[in-house]
Amino acid sequence: MKGNRDTAQGPDDPVIVVESLTAGFGETTILENVNLKVLRGEILCIVGGSGCGKSTLLKQMIGLIRPDNGRVLVGGDDIAAVDDERLNRIRRGIGVLFQSDALFGSMTLGENVALPLSGFKGISAETVQLIVRMKLGMVNLVGYENHYPAELSGGMRKRGGLARAMVLDPQILFFDEPSAGLDPINSAELETLIRGINAGLGTTMVIVSHQVDLVLRVAHRILMLDRGAKGIVAAGSPEELRNTATDPRVRNFLFRGEAAVGGR
């Protein structure tokens, strides 16, 4: 494929590989021997009940915390072993939308979105301004660059956080509970954006959420974590899981109220 891609890798190469990852806090183990791959261009949703370690897994994948055991490979590099320069380069290829939007309250929305650009020399102020407007346009926030986060609604702040996460054209976007605290309308708007950006820019997406309806609507592939199992208990596309999953934990969580497999 000759495409708008950053590397010469094929479309089926995984962008992230998690190998026998074990993680926890102090004495407690949260995740045990977790293996997974994130494929180029897909929307991968990691679901599970509250406290099962979804955010922990996400933070491992972006190198914010180190695994107790196992490895996280991003683009082939072990994220816990690379030097600072390489780590920064990897991070520039990653955008993260945190659960609380993580916009800086002392800066305007425009300054927030421009922040990642300040790490680059030799970019004119006009270019920065236009890039900010372009990204704000992509998340339907044209005109709001001089507003402070406190003056925006929850949904707008989330989209602002998304604009900031996207400003360096990351290859991979991470979302932690994207629809948390949003009403159905704002949530639906964010969903549309997620799908549009994935389709338009080809950005690989990893979404961590306990909101089943959102996940079933946007996911190409679902991984379900379970607190008791300390790891993945189901994997597959929404359709595959709906048609084949028999594990009661999975059925109860994802398809509560629907008939069991074969029972329709």
Binding site: T108, G110, R133, M134, V142, G143, N146, G196, G200
Partner: peptide, 17 residues
């Protein structure tokens, strides 16, 4: 994906707040 008209539209609010 780019909203071209939005690139030049002036902000809803002037700077400073």
């Amino acid at each position: 994906l780019i909203d071209r008209e939005g690139l030049t539209r002036s902000p809803l609010r002037a700077e400073g707040g």
